[in-house]
Structure formats: structure tokens, C-alpha cells
Design a protein around this nucleic acid. Sequence first.
DNA 1: CAGTAACCGAGACGGTACGTCGAGTCTTACA
DNA 2: TGTAAGACTCGACGTACCGTCTCGGTTACTG
Lengths: 194, 194, 194, 194
Amino acid sequence: VTPAARPGRTRSEAARQAILEATRVELIERGYDKLSLDRIAAAAGVGKQTIYRWYPSKSALVAEGVLLGHLIPGAGIPDTGDLRADVTAWLVSLREISERSEGAALVRATIAATAEDETVALRYDEQVTAVTRGELTARLVRGIADGSVRGDAPIDAVVDSLVGVVLFRIMTRQPLTSAFIDGLVDLTFSGMGS
Amino acid sequence: VTPAARPGRTRSEAARQAILEATRVELIERGYDKLSLDRIAAAAGVGKQTIYRWYPSKSALVAEGVLLGHLIPGAGIPDTGDLRADVTAWLVSLREISERSEGAALVRATIAATAEDETVALRYDEQVTAVTRGELTARLVRGIADGSVRGDAPIDAVVDSLVGVVLFRIMTRQPLTSAFIDGLVDLTFSGMGS
Amino acid sequence: VTPAARPGRTRSEAARQAILEATRVELIERGYDKLSLDRIAAAAGVGKQTIYRWYPSKSALVAEGVLLGHLIPGAGIPDTGDLRADVTAWLVSLREISERSEGAALVRATIAATAEDETVALRYDEQVTAVTRGELTARLVRGIADGSVRGDAPIDAVVDSLVGVVLFRIMTRQPLTSAFIDGLVDLTFSGMGS
Amino acid sequence: VTPAARPGRTRSEAARQAILEATRVELIERGYDKLSLDRIAAAAGVGKQTIYRWYPSKSALVAEGVLLGHLIPGAGIPDTGDLRADVTAWLVSLREISERSEGAALVRATIAATAEDETVALRYDEQVTAVTRGELTARLVRGIADGSVRGDAPIDAVVDSLVGVVLFRIMTRQPLTSAFIDGLVDLTFSGMGS
DNA sequence: CAGTAACCGAGACGGTACGTCGAGTCTTACA
DNA sequence: TGTAAGACTCGACGTACCGTCTCGGTTACTG
């Protein structure tokens, strides 16, 4: 796909990357609602108009800037054959993200943006929830095959519970301790019923 | 405990209530980051300074305005003796809150405020998470007593999973359907293991 | 002298004119210290920031808005050959300005701004006093030439006395009557000595 | 006339003096339009209401605070028999006032207040112009008697010229030099005519 | 000599305006 | 035509004062 060969100067992919990078820095340092496009433009060495040429609004920029491969889906679910261990490993990798302060700040910025803006929520669903659900579902289906998951397990509930609880702990600034992860895995596999 | 007997005119509780009410209206209609203190002051018939006299920041105002008995803890957990039915009933009552558009808007505003501001997160923890955890824990302890919950169930994981998943569905604009609730209760009691 | 060729949009001279015009209206209607930049901006159809881009302070705006060719120097000193008649005619033209209520209001605003702000005082000196002194001095020099003014007359004292007395009468709301003007001219030419 | 014998606590003259003193300090330090009643009240150790009990408005306070015996009339016109020397001495005493920075600041504050507020202008006229005119007139009348002033001199023009020129020099921050004073006296006695 | 009326310091109140910052748009000169 | 720069309108921010009102508390006249 040739880039259309239009007249005039070609749009600078470098500028776009600089914008996204500057956005992430701002998000980490100040959070979602203290974001300033003026500051981003200055930091990226870019005119404000260039930002608006790529992204129609602040939330679109944030959606793109945060979600594009820089977040949770980065932590793919491993497949060692031992499902319980794999889920635990996945949660541990999320814990590591949440313990780097920049990671927690980005996640919180994403939560705020998602809660406040419908279009960000849609993008979030496509790019994070759907991907995670896909990976997790695929892994669980293999688990059903090897007998470690029962055939009628409520996959949606599992996915949303796990993602939801992680976001909730980050949102409320509670650490994801080992003990908590163990309890969560235990609950997920065995339930609390007697 | 004397009421301090400070000099000067006594602070107007009526003004404070008007501020909180106007804040809730604004939150429902516009969301957290489009909140305008100018508009709130005008709607409440109050000087802007009076708002700042009571609340040091936008987030403090939102924390107070939203959390004070106007949210989730309003939905207490029932106790009919049948724990599974009680948890289901509790989730259904949350669904009803989330389906009134004002309920969902307030919850989303709270999520945004909590994610962005540490002090709001602290308040949220005290006034929502702690209360819910307390109620749920008490109910589960009775469940252990009557044998419907195993003695070593990870209570924290249960509480944060249930609250987290509800907030996650509201944040991402996914409905809390009956089917989802059933799956969630099933997962919580029985786990997904085979 | 090239027009600088700076990057970015060129500053809007139209906006500046609208600001000055709105300022004069406000000054006439409300006076110097009841001036509101919010109102001026609204009346001029201009953002407040644009006012601050042109003028660093309220007084600078007033200095510019009032002094720029809209004041006393507008009343140049005539030269008919009869110096006494010329000075009288000049004072009469000042009387006419001071009798239009908008004229008096503008003069009083200028007095207030000048008295309160050093930089306005400097501008006033350059744009009003210096110009008037120049015109009057030139006229008096011609008067010396034709013998109607003595060669060692204290020009500075003449200029400051005439300007000062006019401003004083306007400031204290005393009218510039014909009788007063005649007395003043008499004093200026002949002195009060016997 | 007894002071009415009203019931209730008598108004505190000490408070009133403290208010006036604090007002003068503020005027000297910040000028007329940056005056703050809150600051004055705090500095005077007085409630704001007390100020309003004595003075209905900011300008009334300034008029009272500044004019009451703390200004130009303090410099009475001497009478040594030599009128020219007396007028010169009076102008020199005004120069001394204008050279103490607090003196010039108070005069400028008064000018600003007078220019902006009609009621202050009235008071100014009564308490400064009228008094000065009275003293000067009395002295000039004696001058007529001893032959140093011609009988038909325009007294009003003399008074307003002298007061006006002094205020004008202070307002525009020009010093009252000896040379200027000499020129002014020369002009006043002999005129500029040949 | 108790009542009560006017004062006092203090400070909260509803407002208006300040000077600054940010969003999103528009207009230059340059590449 | 795209780009960096930057001015534009609009609107919100958090602060400072204004002039009023309301506290608890203090005088001083009055019945």
C-alpha cells in the first residue's frame, strides 16, 4: 500500500511517535485530567495543530497513546501446560507492572479516561479487554481440553473478574501481594463454596 | 464536646448541602472532568469561595459529594439464610443502580476521581470498600457457620473480585446481565476448576 | 524596517482597536477604578488573554487607550499672530472638551491613572505634556520674535501652570468659565504685581 | 448640645483613630486603588463592620483619612511683610513635602481619589482648596494694601494656578526645583508679557 | 441593679473581578 | 500540502476584596 503519493509534504510519522511518547510522559507525571496539549506539543517539538490532525480530541489521543501496546496486553498469558501456574505467573507479571510507579500511573490514567469518556471505553474494550479475553479464553479452552477446567465454566465472568480485580486494586492503591494473588487463584479455581 | 465556640459567623450547613446537591447534579450531567466549580456555585446560589472554604480541591468535593451515603453501600447485603441467593440479590440490586443512568454516571465519576486522586482513593476505601467488605465478611462468616462456605475461603479476594468486577463492567459500559451475574455467582461458589 | 517576519499568526490590529474603543467607553461610563477587563473583553468581542498580550496591566491599557490622540494635544494652539487671542482660544477649546461629559470623564480617568502609576506618568509626560510644551514653546518663541513676550519668560512655568490649572479645575469639578479664563490669561501675561 | 445620651456602648474613638492611621499607611505603601479594607481592618485590629459604621464607603474613608489635617493646608502661608519671599517660602515648604516619599505618595493618592470620586472632590474643595484660597487671599489682600499686588489681580486664577501646578508636578513625578519655583514666582508676579 | 440596646472583634456569606492556564481553531512563513 | 509557531475566542481556575450579615461578648444608659 503506497502512501497515496499526494502533493505537498508527507505527514511525519516521527512527529506522531514524539506526540505519543510525550503524552505518556505527561500521563505518568500528572495524570489524565491535568494533561495539557500545549505542554505535550512543546515537549514533542510539534505544533498543536499536528496533534489535532492525528487525533480529534484529548481523549482520542490518550486512548491511542496509552493503549497502543504499552499496557496490560503486553503481559501475555504463558502456556506451560500447568494452567494454575500460568494464571499465577500472569498475575505476578501484572503485579510487577503495578509496582513500577510509572506503570500504576499509566493504568490509573487509563481507568480515569475510560470511566470519563465513552469512546475511550470502546477502544479500551477492543484493545485490552478483547485481547486479554481472547488470550485467556484460548488458554482456558486448552485447559478444558487437558481437563484442568470444567467444560461449563463461565469464561466471561472469569476474565472480567480477574481484570476487574487487578484494576480495582491499582485504582484503590492496594498492593497486589503474593498472598492476595494466591487467594485469588484459589478462589478462581476452587470457589469459596464448601 | 462543645461546638468549638469560634468567633465570627457560624458556617452555613445549608450552603454546604446546596453545594453537595449541585455537585451531584453536575456529576450526573457532565461527569468528573467537565465539572465546573463556577457552575456548581451558581447552581447552589453560593459564592465560589464558600466551596473552597469547605473543600480544598475538586476531588475532595467529589469524594464528599458522591460518597456520603449516596452510593454502593446503600445496597446492603441481605441475609435470608440462603447465601447464594443473598449474593445474587445483592448483585441484582447493584445492576439496578447501574441501569439508572444517573447511577452509572455517579459511579463512573467516582471511579475517575478515585483513579486520579490519592486522597479520594483513601476516602473511597474507608467509606465504600471497607463498609462493603465488612458487610460481606460478616455474611460470609455466617455462611461458614452454617456450612455453605468453606472455612479457609479467601475473603479479601472474594470481596475485591465482586466489587472490582461490578466497577469494571460499569466503567467499560458493559451491562450486568442476569446471565453474567449467574456465571459470576457460579464462579464465586464453585470455581472454574474441574 | 521589515515587519519582523515572525512565525505564527499575525497579531490582530482589529482586536487591539476594539479593545481600545471598549476601554474608552468603559472609562467614560464608569471611571478608572471601576474598570473591568472582563467587561472590556466582552464588549470588544475579544478574549481576556488578548488584552494581556497587548497591555501588561490595567494602567498600561488606560494610558494607551486614552492618550493615543484622543486627548488634550488634539487641541493644538492656533497661530493668528495675536498671541493673547491664541492662548485664549486654546483655553476655550479645552473648556469645550471639559464640558462634554465624556471629555471630563476621560481626563479624570487619565489623572487617576497618572497619579497612581509611574509608567503611565511617564507616557503622559511624553505624549501630552511634551507635545503641549513643544507647541506652546514654539508659539511663545514666535511671540518673543514679534515682541509680545519678553525674552526671559519662564516657559516651563507657563506651560505647567496652564496645563496644571486646567487639570486641577477638571479634577475638582470646577467649570472653566470665561471669567476664569480671562483672569488666567491676564495673570499669565501681566502677572499680579502692581 | 449634649451627645444625645443614647443607650448602648459608646463608639470607640480609639478604633477610629487606628482605622485612619492604618489607612494612611496603606495609602502610602500601595496607593488609592490597591487599598484593601480587609487589610486596613486587620492592621487596625478592628472589625470590618466598625469601619463601615464610621465611613459609608472606601472613598469617604480616604477623604477623611487623608485630608484631615495631614496635607497641604498644614503648610500655611507665612507673612513677613515681603510677599514675594512669603510665596516663595510657601512653595519651598510644599517642595519639602513632595520630596519626602510618603508625602508625594499621599498627595498622589489624594489626586487619584479626587479625580475618581465626586464626593471626595467636594471634601477636597472644602478642606484643601478653600482653606488655601482663604489663606492666600488674605495674604494677597494685605499685599494690595501695602502696594505689592495690583488691586484688580485675578485671585482665583492665582490660587488655582499655584495649587494646580504643584499637584501637576507631583502627579507627573517632576521635581519642584528651585529654578522652577523661581520661574513660577516670577511669572506670577510679573507675567510673561513684554 | 437587671434589661436591653448599641457597640466591639471576628469571620463566613453571595458576588464580582482578577490574572493565568488550557482547549480547540485559525493564520502566518517555511519546507 | 504539511509543519512549527503562535495568536485567536472561550471558559474555567483559585485568589482577593467588597459590602453585608451573624456570631459571642462588652459597655453603658434606662426603667
